[in-house]
Simulated scan of single mutants.
Amino acid sequence: MMKVHWWSCVLGLLCMPAEVILGLGTAFQSPSSISFMRVNSSAEITCSTSLKNPMGLYVYRQFHSEKNIVYLDLMEFSITKNTIYNTFTGRLHVTPAKTVTNDHHGFTFQLSLLGLEDTNLYYCEWLYTDTQFNKRQVASNGTIIIIKEGGPEEQCKNPILDLILICSSIGAFTVILLIFIIVLIMRCKRYKKKFRPAVPPPRPPRPQHICPHHHHPYLVTSVSTDINMDVNMDVR
């Protein structure tokens, strides 16, 4: 939708200089308003003029590298030769206009099998010779054609459907997140109830260090000898 509005604003502004030329009253084009068309649909543009003896008629598109669409070589408003460019071959049908007045003549161009790339400003340019036999051109006001994938009703419904889808997705995600948090909390509580601290295994008794007894045979013998000697002296 934003792209469509952007195209409408830009193309509308660029049409303003063409409307000044329209005030000359020598070239006209219809429809002059913006048209919203579906993909693969058809659109009609009618180019008319009050020139008495135009030499030819071009139909251009403003915003494209290949601007030419068709050229009609005219003689008293009869097509003696026409050139349709490759992009519109098989998609363009030209007929004499039926809606112009007696003092105007023109042609109707039917563009069929429209695609998104056909969104553009289309305008007509008439060739003629002035009183001094110089070639001149006069362009008519442009017709803006905007192609979009869906019709107006579908385009209006799409934002509502998108909003409902987004809200539903957010709601579903929130519910799933809450369920996950609740399950996680319940599992944590159950784990705390069943949790028992682990008792470390008893340590093995440490071996006692026993100091060995040292015998001194020579010392004992010596002491015993002294005692015996003392005893013997007393006896004597």
Rank of each mutant, 00 (worst) to 15 (best):
R203V: 14
L219F: 08
C156A: 15
M229W: 04
I147A: 03
V4N: 02
L161K: 14
S33G: 07
T143G: 07
I45R: 00
A27R: 03
P31S: 01
R203C: 09
M75E: 12
L127S: 13
V39M: 04
R203A: 14
C167D: 09
V10K: 04
E66I: 09
F28W: 05
S35H: 03
F107K: 04
T225I: 07
L113S: 14
G150H: 12
A97M: 01
S168E: 06
S8D: 12
N141K: 08
V138A: 05
L116K: 10
I210V: 15
H214D: 04
R190A: 13
F195Y: 15
L121Q: 08
E117T: 10
I144H: 08
V39T: 12
E76M: 05
L178K: 10
P197D: 06
L178D: 09
Q137M: 12
G142W: 03
L177R: 12
E154F: 11
M229A: 14
V175Y: 08
P152A: 13
P96F: 00
C156H: 07
I182E: 06
M55I: 06
T221Y: 11
F63M: 07
D226P: 00
D226K: 09
R190G: 09
I227K: 06
N232D: 13
T89A: 07
I146V: 09
C156L: 15
Q62W: 11
S112A: 13
P152V: 12
A18W: 06
N134P: 01
L177V: 14
H213K: 11
V231H: 08
V223Q: 12
F88D: 04
R136T: 00
Q29W: 04
P201L: 14
P202Y: 04
N82L: 13
Y122A: 01
F77R: 00
K135Y: 07
D73C: 05
F36M: 10
P31L: 03
V70T: 06
V235K: 05
D230E: 10
K193T: 14
Y58V: 02
V183C: 13
G142V: 07
I181F: 15
L14H: 05
R38P: 05
V138K: 00
K98E: 14
E76Q: 10
C124F: 03
I185D: 09
T80N: 09
I144V: 13
A139E: 12
V231R: 11
G150R: 12
V4H: 02
T87Q: 15
F36K: 05
I34R: 12
T101H: 06
E149Q: 10
F180P: 00
Y218N: 11
D230I: 14
Y191Q: 13
V100L: 06
T80F: 02
P159E: 01
I21V: 10
I45G: 00
W7I: 01
D73H: 07
D103V: 04
A27M: 03
M1W: 04
W126K: 02
T26H: 09
S42E: 11
A18C: 01
F195G: 02
D118N: 15
G56C: 05
W126R: 01
G142M: 06
G23Y: 05
S224L: 14
C15L: 00
I34C: 02
F180D: 14
G23S: 12
K52W: 02
G106H: 03
I144C: 07
D118S: 04
G142F: 05
L74E: 02
T225A: 10
V220C: 11
K52S: 11
S168F: 10
H104D: 00
D118T: 02
K194H: 13
F28S: 09
